[in-house]
Design a protein around this nucleic acid. Structure first.
Lengths: 349, 349
DNA sequence: GATACTGTTGACACCGGTGTCAAGTTGACG
DNA sequence: CGTCAACTTGACACCGGTGTCAACAGTATC
């Protein structure tokens, strides 16, 4: 019942604790015989090394912080699960840190998190990945961090601190998706269905992905030889209500679009609601698509064609980058999820 | 730039490290003068005690594990946030552990979690709160844990181990809500709107809350002098699709109910879909209510009247119980959230 | 056979705190 | 003024691991 420490194991195996430590860490220069002997004692006594003691000795905490925006977005569980899977594999623990991205003492609380908890690494998710002051602070703290879904890189984001310029070795890794490409493909898909009057609902103007998704839409139109119609491009805010507003606006046009591409699923849901109120049949009179593959996309009626980003994989890759102390920029691909809300264009009866 | 440890502080303040430690922990028997002096040095050097070192010395990890079911249920973020708020206050960290409740090596992985990570406490959420073998294992490991939303107590859940009976001091605390009461009130609310043909969609038969919610429904009917109609009581599985099935079943009845109370919001969403397909207007021809106040409830159209449990508060209370080493059973109240999916009964035109 | 080199092992200090205990200081009381 | 108790403080061991370095093989080189 008493605790099994390295000392107990050492005594039991008739070797020094240092040798036990060597076996623990798979260090070279241990004879096969002693290694076997010690390993046998591990099993016999059910020995578990103490992460706390190891942490003290090596100045590590085996803790990784995950920072994400507070609102209960559904994708946070994907991020968490992706990050967790790698953490568990490598003996690290994940500390989740929902923070309001508009909070005044955001910098302070993240600094406190870093210094107080002695984290071994920090994962930033949008919109934190692109906060210049935050990055500058982390660089100055000499923190190890990885940015997920970032849109700014290089000198645009890494502060140049006059006294002590950021060293090259200090560049943080990134794991990103390609929203522009995904939006391009979604738009191309709508065009391939025969639509040429495609409305677009932009996202919140402060959010960096907004511009990327919009760009993808525009490029696809142009690539198909279509000309964008300003009436068809409206400004949303990423929430359900703004989706309704934009839907009303687009669907009240005399020459209304036959397809609407909303920059996220919540806004697409708002459009579906307006369409239903107006008696416009989706998908046959109107195709609607979203972005993000939020849980709601499956439950809507009709279920929503959307873009699924590899969130879980991205989070997992982020942790791997972090632990490998890499400084690469990794890009991962999104996929189209085609459901019931899109159909070939049918000319009005 | 070099690390500020307790030794540095001690030297700087001209006292022993033990005295610094005393100030850190607000121990008595330190003169006001030295206490002030040391605290001044804390500020001057920006000293932060190392949780790792403290943990090694006191045999604590300052880690608390949170176990919940893997599926991306929306309420997990409420649980997480509630638990986090208290953890942060008290200097603990929260380790999240999504586990599939049907997993074969569930016991093994939780045992591993407990022993490997040297947790200071464990929070069990449904359905883990009521797993007898799990509780038995934790009792045997002498683990500190708290059960959230449990339905079984006392000898029904605490295993009686022959060799070494569970000591009274070892009873785990619980934090629970009152689903039966909430279901009672929701049903009473529907009755108060004039409905007397109220359908009920039961939840997954394995889930303990299923019975509680059903009981509340029945008791409210009886309290109002109504007689339950077996045709109006159907078996769901807590998911969207089963909601559709149950909705079709109930709404195909010759004498169909004028209100349907689904045991959760996803099933209620399925019913809304079927009602929409059948051209039955909600809320005027049919009132629909759910349970749980899932995010979807706000986004549905019409938005859903439902029951909101104080999830966040329960999780916070759970951590507090755990850290206080209490063994109380705390019950917290749910509230009705009335939205657009319910309206007074209108006799058919 | 002496020398150098590689591989194996353990003694010991150290990480940054806390617990124990004894020594020094102070003040109350007889 | 001496005695004793209460308060204040520090020396030192300890928590359970890792890093450094030296001692001691055993083997290759000349």
């Amino acid at each position: 019942m008493s605790k099994v420490t390295i000392n107990v194991v050492a005594k039991h195996a008739g070797v020094s604790k240092k040798t036990v430590s060597r076996v623990l860490n798979d260090e070279p220069n241990v004879s096969a015989a002693t290694k076997e002997k010690v390993k046998a004692v591990f099993k016999e006594l059910g020995y578990r090394p103490s992460p706390v003691a190891r942490g003290l000795a090596t100045n590590r905490s085996f803790l990784i912080g995950l920072v994400y925006d507070n609102p209960n977005k559904a994708y946070v569980s994907d991020i968490q699960n992706g990050a967790l899977s790698v953490c568990n594999d490598k003996g690290y623990h994940l500390l989740i840190n929902p923070i309001d991205h508009e909070s005044d003492d955001l910098l302070l609380s993240i600094e406190k998190l870093w210094t107080e908890s002695r984290l071994d690494g920090l994962v930033l998710t949008p919109p934190f990945s692109d906060m210049q002051p935050l990055i500058a602070m982390l660089d100055q703290l000499n923190a190890d961090y990885v940015r997920v879904g970032a849109t700014l890189f290089g000198e645009d984001i890494h502060a140049k601190i006059d006294e002590e310029p950021v060293r090259a070795s200090h560049l943080s890794p990134c794991v990103i998706s390609n929203d522009e490409q995904a939006a391009f493909e979604m738009t191309r898909y709508l065009i391939s269905l025969g639509h040429d009057k495609i409305g677009f609902v932009k996202g919140h103007p402060d959010h960096p992905v907004t511009e990327q998704r919009y760009e993808g839409y525009l490029k696809a139109l142009r690539a198909a030889g279509l000309i964008e119609n300003p009436d068809y491009i409206v400004q949303g805010m990423f929430d359900f209500r703004s989706g309704e507003d934009c839907g009303r606006q687009l669907l009240s046009l005399d020459d209304r679009p036959t397809a609407i591409f909303a920059s996220n699923d919540y806004m697409a849901a708002g459009i579906l609601k307006v369409a239903s109120q107006k008696g416009i049949a989706v998908p046959h009179e109107l195709a609607v698509t979203g972005f993000d593959n939020a849980p709601i996309a499956r439950h809507l009626w009709p279920s929503l064609t959307t873009v699924k980003q590899p969130i879980e994989e991205m989070a997992a890759a982020a942790i791997e980058q972090l632990l490998a102390r890499s400084s690469d920029r990794l890009q991962m691909d999104s996929v189209l999820v085609v459901r019931e809300s899109t159909a070939p264009f049918q000319s009005a009866s």
